[in-house]
């Protein structure tokens, strides 16, 4: 990098046209899309959980085995976990620095992916097994 202090180029000139973090805008937009989707999904999710409270094992399985609650739950999980993965990424970017940040970013991705897969797998298993 041209970080030479004797360079005639200004700091702005050195970084101009190199772009931002490149995918920042897309992430920012997806954060907003998922947040908008999560408003109705959260209300529906809370409704679904309330309807599960009075049910035993078989009742809960029957409820979650219906297509509508099952799809609702999977939508909530997918939008929610994608949303929280982006959110945690910005928290990590704010508070963790250096090599630890790279590990934290990877752990965040693994955690989110594992959690999403576990939830989706469980809902599908309830419906089909």
């Amino acid at each position: 990098m041209a970080d030479d202090l004797n360079s005639m180029r200004t700091p702005l000139g050195r970084v101009r046209f190199l772009g931002s973090a490149r995918s920042g805008m897309r992430e920012d937009w997806l954060m907003r899309v998922t947040s908008a989707a999560l408003v109705p999904l959260t209300i529906a999710f809370v409704w679904l959980i309330l309807s599960l409270l009075s049910k035993d094992y078989n009742g809960a399985r029957a409820e979650l085995g219906h297509p509508f609650p099952a799809i609702l739950m999977m939508l909530f999980v997918l939008a929610g976990i994608y949303h929280m993965q982006i959110g945690m990424r910005s928290i990590i970017a704010d508070y963790i620095h250096g090599r630890a940040r790279e590990w934290a970013l990877m752990a965040n991705l693994v955690f989110a992916a594992a959690l999403a897969l576990a939830c989706i797998y469980a809902v599908l298993r309830i419906g089909f097994v």
Partner: peptide, 13 residues
């Protein structure tokens, strides 16, 4: 907290 949801769903499954 989503861990609790995953746990509940897996247990139900």
């Amino acid at each position: 907290g989503v861990l609790l949801l995953a746990w509940f769903l897996l247990a139900t499954s």
